[in-house]
Design a protein around this nucleic acid. Structure first.
Lengths: 153, 153
DNA sequence: TTATATGTAATCCGATGAGTTACAATTAAA
DNA sequence: TTTAATTGTAACTCATCGGATTACATATAA
């Protein structure tokens, strides 16, 4: 799981809070990264129908789904990521030793189990949950960000 | 979680199966990596009292604990690893926006939850479990590796 | 005393994450 | 129609990290 996941979640929550088209520059500034990276990640979310985009003046990205119906597993799969991935393989299928032969499959299985458990956790966390955590008194009564007027970009 | 984890599990299972001192070269050959890497990883397992070592002729590493009492969480913590780690941080604590301010903590919390769930899974998998998977008919009746005679190194 | 091992550091290489820049294509608005 | 703003995407650089390799001092059994 790379930091793309953190960037994507942060971006979606930001879009959800703004409730209007937001440019990649503005998102990048809020997340603290660069616009090209944001656009690259937004493209994946667009392919997964999680956000929408519009070019030109007043354009950018927008989140117009129900926050309670989008969860973190949706975002993870939109990025084509896993919790843990099994890249380096131990042992050798051609060795006449059951340990050398079989351990890679054992490891694969362990990683799968961890992934599945992680997915179940992510499925239970929605964008709405995160918004409620960030704004325990409601977004309208936010005492720092207010309702995100221009001066807080 | 890096591949060290896979190497460590494979090595411990191999030592458990061999039931005698095994050199880093022999372990490396079975795992398919290099001896220096094995020694580095063995050192961490030694510090955690999971394996023992002996220098000189006939030396190497040995696993002399009860396979049913060592689980994968022991190994993971011996390596000082986590399932997922939170290195790249999004947002900015100095920004007057609750999203930019709070999202990093939200992400941290999600990662922690995933880690804890993963630890619980690893705690339930012992070295004995893996040996039983690799040798469903018992280690003595192993039809490929036999009881790991010299010709199968 | 010698051969075999570990412990550990130094170095190299390749892959990958992240930032930066650039520019064609698209779209809204003047 | 023109202009300005914005995305989509590729190319490039840079730093970091995982892994392999080499080397050598130290320890131990025979």
């Amino acid at each position: 799981m790379t930091a793309e996941f953190a960037v994507a979640i942060h971006s979606v929550v930001f879009l959800c809070h703004k409730k209007k088209y937001v440019s990649s520059s503005e998102i990048a500034d809020n997340v603290c990264t660069n616009p090209a990276r944001i656009r690259k990640i937004m493209n994946k979310l667009i392919s997964a129908n999680i956000v929408e985009t519009k070019n030109g003046v007043g354009g950018g990205y927008i989140f117009s789904l129900k926050p309670s119906e989008v969860n973190l597993f949706h975002i993870l799969t939109a990025l084509d990521e896993k919790i843990v991935s099994h890249k380096w393989h131990s042992g050798d299928k051609n060795k006449p030793c059951q340990v050398a032969f079989g351990m890679d499959a054992v490891t694969e299985n362990i990683y799968n189990t961890i992934n599945i458990a992680g997915y179940e956790i992510l499925k239970k966390i929605t964008i709405e949950d995160i918004i409620k955590t960030l704004f325990p008194n409601g977004e309208e009564k936010a005492n720092i960000c207010g309702n995100c007027k221009k001066n807080f970009i």
